[in-house]
Every structure is written in structure tokens, then in C-alpha cells.
Design a protein around this nucleic acid. Structure first.
Length: 750
RNA sequence: GCUGGCGUAGCUCAGCUGGUAGAGCAUCUGCCUUGUAAGCAGGAGGUCACGGGUUCGAGUCCCGUCGCCAGCUCCA
């Protein structure tokens, strides 16, 4: 019996029963059949080898379509696994990623980590498999059959067994085989590997089995594949370009900021106190006994010495075991050092367990601020001040009130909010002040709430919009720190909106508009939005969630932005939208966020008096536009490759002279510009003009004014633009000032 | 925090199987008086991240600590 399928143009086509998408392609034309790599059946990607059913809508996708490219990368991943199995017979194949939208990877369990040379060999083997147009064959089997096939192929390993275990008994599963390598895989795959025209292995790094640090570390090989060689070249070019734009490199070169620079070491002297840090991994009562024992040893070894101790307690690594990590900082004699340094074991009735004690001695202290803490140098400080001034100006115009709160506060505030319980580990250790724990603030919200609570509020006062450039401190794990993008002290451009329910819709809309206006001012044009909805664990009323999720979605639609819904991806306290900006290299950065909060008003028992004279709880919204000022500046630097628009440039105009005969005039030009509000400089130099121009160009100063005898005589300067190296010719002083002011004007966006 | 790699002058980097610390740029001092991306000469700059070990001898080999980089994980 023939079946009828519907093509994208709406026409139907008759095929014999059991016909596949590949059969359909062949029925249309041989040329198409050679190009098609995957089918989209009723909107779902499906392998071209699978049979179609009558009435299905079928779209045939070529390798360069989004669906085709994803399939191609997925297949490249299997070619990678094939190549590794061929070159490293002992390698155990585990798993690749769920999505193949960007790069692909495969994790392997191997004896030794791969070296860069290994990667080259693997890539060469992959290219050979691709050149041979290695076919993928598919079989649909039961679980027992699958086990037998893995055994036969010599690819039965504990990982594959575990993966097989996740599949319900009795379910049919698909296996794909290429060049003798068989793998359990949902598919779909390319007809053959020859469609992969550009492939490159990018890196090799550790990754845990099932992303759990308790599991074995596997070797993850990551690569990228394309349907055209040119696309690969374009991609590699972009990677190179990203490297050149790295804000850490430019930040140093342009003298904007430094992060965790280290300079000299200094030896301690014996009149300085001895600093002891005890990292204790033990369960009570062993922990305290061990600490007491250690401190007893230290006080007898260093009699009369002032000792400052810090103790950090955490649970034992496993029951019955305990470990102490002790760091001693301070001056000491060689004998004292020999007594305390090294690995020791404490035992005996007091501790009740074997306790491993590792003592390290640091005889020097170092000139270093600390990892993830930024020093803004004069030029970066200027940039930051420009951004913050603009931010303040726009907020005051936008109906916000600007507030300030301290950097430290009692930990109680975050106990009230509930964050202490979940995020204590990510806060800087509390400091004890007059018997109370104080912490560096990890967020600004409690302060703003307390400002609202500072007197009884009437419904007439809402909405209240409290904005603050609040620097917060979070103890991020050492491995995640990255330039300005991920730091331990950063400034949120935070604001909290408090309003009545009847104001929520308009407030959401206002914020959306405000976010776009702010980001566009900084020169970003394209945005993507993510809407995160109610997760399984949540606080508040379901109807409030549903209501506000709809309002958020409506606001996104009203502003005509492309968006995705992350169902169940919201924080426990409320739904949110995140706005990603797209930079010059088409990379996406999430900076802005707008979030409902059904938790804090409740926990902080916030209320206001409504029109009927009743107590009512206000609605709270969090929002950030730039996200973190530090990170935003990092994004700006990378977006503009350091060549910031004139209004953001720390130095907007540099006056350069042909010889030092013109110095006096150059200084006058510079002074006139400064008086007109332009950040202009002039500095004497014995270099030739070319060298001065070069220096200004490297410093990425947007405007250069050249002054020679001619310009002195005519009372002006010749203008050169950084961008394009353009020489705009001579301008007399009044026109010159106007021109520079125009070039440096802050862009207006509606 | 975990795995791997790295740490030499302000910056970018040489420094071989262990044998007296180097270059370019920047900085400083002179000379040159200069026309749109590098004039010339000279000087100064380093406990080779820190600590310990092996060795007659360590920038080099080994161990530990700190920091950075890539990835994992995390991101209120």
C-alpha cells in the first residue's frame, strides 16, 4: 500500500510502504539525494534511514542547514570516537554532548591524557575516515542484542553498561556503526562522513564522568566541524580575533586595570604575630580536640609569641577519618620550623581517630591584593567613572532613586533572606565584631528592603525604585576566575523595584525599555532574551507565578525581541528574563536581568497601607542592566577590540607636534579643548611625528591633532582619526573645538 | 574545589642533555628639530613566583605552597 507524505511546498508525494526520507529524496532527484543529510518530519529531526508514515510533513535538510549542521557535528563526534578507538585500542568510549549547536566533544577514559601530538594524529585519522566517505549504518535492536553487539565489537565497558542501564527494559534502541566502531546513539547521523568538509580538534581537557567531581576524570576532546571548508576558516579566524580582543591583554596594554598582580615578597620578623590557619575536615568531637592538640603544640613551640588563629571547620572526608590542613605564616627559627612543618599523625584517646595533619610554613608575605580582586588604574578608573556617570544620569532621568549601602553587614541579614543557608560557602568568611558575625555583602537586596522598611509606607509611595552601584563580594571558586568577567569583588548595577500588583505590568515594561536604551547607548544592537519559568521547588503562589510569567513574556513580545523559554529554569523565588547582548564577533553575553521576587517581601515581612487602609505585601523586582560593571567593561573592551567610541575613551584627543617649536601652541589647543569639556592631552616629546602618531594609535586614542608651523600660523590643528587613519585636514580653533565636542558627544537613543 | 599546562626585566619572549642570566619593545640620559604607525647612541632594570630537596654546582631535575591559563563544576 502506498503512503502519501507532504512536502514543504504543501504538495503530496506517493511513496511505497516503508519508504525512507532518503527514498523520498531519490524519488525527487538524484542530485538532491546526494545532498540530503537529515530529514525533519512533522518538525522533528529524523534519520533519513527511518521509514516515513502516511500524512507526515517531510522536509529534507542539506548539510549547511541548521539541522544538517547539527547532524554533521554529531557525526563528526562519532568519527572522533572511531579515530580514537583505532589509534588507542585500550580507550574506553563514554559519552558526547546532548546538543551539537556549537562544537562537539567526546569523553574518553584512557590511561594517559592525550598530548597535543595525539590530537594531531587523531585529527589526521578523522580526516582519513572522512576522505573515505565512511558510511554510517543504523540498526534498531533490543537491549540484550545491543549488549551482544558491544561485546562482539570489543566495546563493552562500564560506561556503556551504565548508559544502557538508563534505558527502560524492553525499549528498542538504535545503534550506529561506522568503520567498525559501534555506538549507542539516538541519532540521526549523516549518510556518510564525506559531508564533513572542515574539521578541527580544538582542545583536550579533563571532564568528570556525568559532570560529577566524585567520578573519574575523563579526557574530553573537543572539536568543531563544518559543511564547508570556508566556514571552518571563518570560525578559526574568529577564534584568532577573539584572542586579539581578549580584555585581559588589552586591559594590560591600555593600562586600564590589573587583577591579582604579584610583586615582592617580604620576610616576616619575630616581632610580628604568628598567623595560623586551620582547615579542619573532621566530625565533632574530633575536630575540636584536634584543634586543641595542634594549638597546644604551637604555643609550646613558640612561647610568648602573639598568635592569630583562623579555624575553618568542614565535615570529615569520610567517617572515621579526619584531616587538618595547617598553614603557618610568620618568622621562625630553623629548629622551630623543623618541629612543626610536614605531615604528621595525631592519635590517642583524646582525638579518638587517626588524624592526618599537613603543616605548611610560609616565611614570606606577598604584595598581592588577592585573586579576583581588581585594581582600576587611572585610565580604567576614568572609563569606569564615565560609564557610572552615564548610568547615574540615565537612572535619575528614568525615575530611580540612587542609594548607597555599606560593604559589610551583619550576617543576620542573609539569614533572614534565606541566602545564608544556601550560599554561606560562597561568601567570604565572616568576621567577628563585638560577638556578631559580619560578612562582606554578597548582594544589595537586604539593604534596599530595609530602606523601604525604614518607615511605614503608603500605596501612594509606590513604585519605589532604588538603584545602587553596589560592590558585592562573592567567594567564587579559584578555577572560575577570569579577568574582569568572573571576579570575587564586583559592582552590580543593582536596583530593586517595590510596587503594587496593579503596577507590575507597567514596571516590567519600563524596565525592558530602559534595559534596551542603556545597552544601545553603549553601541549594542542585537539582543536575545531568555524567559525562565517556575521550577519544581518554588515559593509563592502558583497564580502569581503564572501571572508574572505572562507579563514578562508579553513585555518581550512587545519589544520585538527574539526569545526562548527555559521552562522550569527560574530561581526558586520568582520568574525572570535574562537579556543577552550580541557583540561584534556575534558572541552572546548575558548582562541584563529582570526578576520577580516572591521570597524576600515575605521573609522580611514587608508591607504597606493600601487604599482601603489595609496592610498589604508589596511586589519586589530585581533588575540589573549592565550586570556587573567589571564584566560589562570586559565585554565593551572585547566588543570594540579596545578601540572604544570617543565618548567612552579615557583620552579622547591627543595633540602632537611636528617639532618642539610648536609646543606652546599645542598646549593652548589642548587647554581650549579641556575647557570645552573634551579629554584632551598634550605632552612634550622628542620623537618624530610618525612615532607620536604611532604611539597615539597604539593607545587607541580616537582623535589626534597635528600641530606644525603651518597650524601655528593659522591658529588651529590638522585632524587625524584613529579609525581608518584618516587625515581630515586643517581646522581653525573654534571649529576644531566644535568638531571634537561633536565627535565625543554621548549618543542619544530613544 | 578537581584535572592538565604554565610562572625568566614593566611588556613579549629566548635560555639545548644541570656549568658565570639574554634579546626586542617600554623606561631613563644625551644627540637630532623632525609633517601622519618606529631617528641615533648610551645607561639602568632580574633572590629566574615562593619554600624545601637531589647535586661539587639548579632558571633547568624532584616535592610542596602560591598564582595564572585551559577545561570541569559553580554562578543568589
Amino acid at each position: 500500500m502506498p503512503i502519501d507524505v507532504i512536502l514543504p511546498d504543501g504538495k503530496t508525494r506517493s511513496l511505497t510502504d516503508g519508504a525512507t526520507a532518503m527514498d523520498l529524496a531519490k524519488a525527487i532527484s538524484e542530485g538532491l539525494a546526494r545532498q540530503v543529510v537529515v530529514a525533519k518530519v512533522d518538525g522533528v529531526v529524523q534519520d533519513v534511514r527511518l521509514p516515513l508514515k502516511s500524512g507526515q510533513k517531510v522536509e529534507l535538510c542539506k548539510a549547511d542547514s541548521p539541522e544538517g549542521l547539527e547532524t554533521l557535528r554529531h557525526s563528526a563526534e562519532h568519527v572522533l570516537a572511531t579515530a580514537v578507538c583505532r589509534l588507542f585500542p585500550g580507550a574506553k568510549v563514554t559519552m558526547g554532548p546532548k546538543s551539537h549547536a556549537d562544537d562537539f566533544y567526546y569523553d574518553f577514559d584512557v590511561e594517559k591524557p592525550f598530548t597535543p601530538e595525539d590530537l594531531e594524529k587523531i585529527e589526521a585519522e578523522m580526516k582519513a575516515l572522512i576522505a573515505a566517505n565512511t558510511e554510517f549504518t543504523m540498526q534498531v535492536v533490543g537491549k540484550d542484542e545491543a549488549r551482544a553487539i558491544f561485546d562482539k565489537a570489543g566495546q563493552n565497558n562500564e560506561y556503556k553498561r551504565e548508559i544502557l542501564g538508563w534505558i527502560p527494559e524492553g525499549e528498542r534502541l538504535t545503534l550506529y556503526t561506522d568503520a567498525g566502531f559501534v555506538d549507542l546513539c539516538r541519532g540521526p547521523h549523516l549518510p556518510h562522513a564525506g559531508f564533513i568538509k572542515g574539521v578541527k580538534l580544538l582542545s583536550n581537557a579533563g571532564a568528570y564522568w556525568r559532570a560529577d567531581a566524585k567520578n573519574k576524570m575523563l579526557q574530553r576532546v573537543t572539536g568543531i566541524a563544518f559543511a564547508k571548508k570556508e566556514d571552518l576558516d571563518k570560525h578559526l579566524y574568529r577564534v584568532e580575533e577573539a584572542k586579539k580582543r581578549d580584555h585581559r591583554k588589552l586591559g594590560r596594554e591600555l593600562e586600564l586595570f590589573i587583577v591579582s598582580e604579584r610583586y615582592d615578597d617580604h620576610a616576616y620578623t619575630t616581632d610580628q604575630e604568628l598567623d595560623i590557619y586551620l582547615g579542619v575536615e573532621a566530625d565533632p568531637p574530633v575536630d575540636h580536640m584536634a584543634v586543641d592538640r595542634v594549638l597546644a603544640v604551637v604555643t609550646t613551640t613558640f612561647p610568648g609569641r602573639a598568635i592569630r588563629k583562623t579555624v575553618k571547620l568542614s565535615p570529615a572526608p569520610e567517617p572515621g577519618r579526619a584531616q587538618l590542613d595547617i598553614r603557618l605564616r610568620g618568622a621562625m627559627t630553623t629548629e622551630q620550623r623543623k618541629l612543626v612543618e610536614g605531615t604528621k599523625w595525631l592519635d590517642g584517646p583524646e582525638t579518638g581517630a587517626m588524624v592526618r595533619v599537613d603543616v605548611t610554613v610560609e616565611p614570606h608575605y606577598t604584595e598581592e591584593v588577592g585573586p579576583g580582586l581588581v585594581l582600576w588604574l587611572p585610565k580604567g578608573g576614568r572609563l569606569r567613572a564615565i560609564i557610572e556617570d552615564q548610568w547615574r544620569k540615565m537612572h535619575l532621568e528614568g525615575g530611580y532613586d540612587i542609594v548607597f549601602s555599606p560593604h559589610i553587614a551583619k550576617a543576620d541579614l542573609w539569614k533572614v533572606s534565606g541566602h545564608w543557608h544556601f550560599y554561606k560557602e560562597s561568601m567570604f568568611s565572616p568576621m567577628s565584631v563585638d560577638g556578631h558575625d559580619y560578612v562582606c555583602k554578597p548582594m544589595n537586596c537586604p539593604f534596599h528592603i530595609m530602606m523601604v522598611k525604614s518607615k511605614s509606607r503608603s500605596y501612594r509611595e509606590f513604585p519605589m525604585r532604588l538603584a545602587e552601584l553596589g560592590t558585592v563580594y562573592r567567594y567564587e571558586m579559584a578555577g572560575v576566575l577570569h579577568g574582569l568577567m568572573r571576579v570575587r569583588g564586583f559592582t552590580q548595577d543593582d536596583a530593586h523595584l517595590f510596587c503594587r500588583w496593579d503596577q507590575v505590568e507597567s514596571e516590567i515594561d519600563r524596565v525592558m525599555h530602559f534595559i534596551l536604551r542603556m545597552l544601545r547607548t553603549f553601541g549594542f544592537k542585537d539582543f536575545e532574551v531568555n524567559l525562565s519559568t517556575r521550577p519544581e521547588k518554588f515559593v509563592g503562589k502558583v497564580e502569581d507565578w503564572d501571572r508574572t510569567e505572562k507579563l514578562l513574556e508579553a513585555a518581550i513580545v512587545r519589544h520585538g525581541l527574539p526569545y526562548q523559554v527555559d521552562a522550569g529554569g527560574g530561581a526558586f523565588y520568582g520568574p525572570k528574563i535574562d537579556i543577552k547582548l550580541v557583540d561584534a564577533l556575534e558572541r552572546k553575553w548575558q548582562c541584563s536581568t529582570l526578576q520577580l521576587d516572591f521570597n524576600n517581601p515575605e521573609r522580611f515581612t514587608m508591607e504597606f497601607v493600601n487604599a482601603k487602609g489595609e496592610k498589604e505585601q508589596p511586589v519586589m523586582l530585581h533588575r540589573a542592566l549592565l550586570g556587573s560593571v567589571e564584566r560589562f567593561i570586559g565585554v565593551l573592551i572585547e566588543h570594540y577590540a579596545g578601540a572604544l567610541p570617543a565618548w567612552l575613551s579615557p583620552e579622547q584627543v591627543r595633540v602632537v607636534t611636528v617639532s618642539d617649536k610648536q609646543n606652546a601652541h599645542a598646549q593652548q589647543v589642548s587647554d581650549a579643548l579641556v575647557a570645552a569639556g573634551v579629554r584632551a592631552t598634550f605632552g612634550e616629546s622628542h620623537e618624530k611625528l610618525g612615532a607620536k602618531i604611532r604611539a597615539a594609535q597604539i593607545e587607541k586614542i580616537p582623535l589626534m591633532l597635528v600641530v606644525g608651523d603651518k597650524e601655528v600660523e593659522q591658529g588651529g590643528a590638522t585632524v587625524r582619526l584613529r579609525d581608518g587613519g584618516k587625515d581630515l585636514g586643517f581646522m581653525a580653533l573654534p571649529a576644531l573645538v566644535d568638531f571634537c565636542r561633536g565627535q565625543c558627544a554621548i549618543p542619544t537613543v530613544d
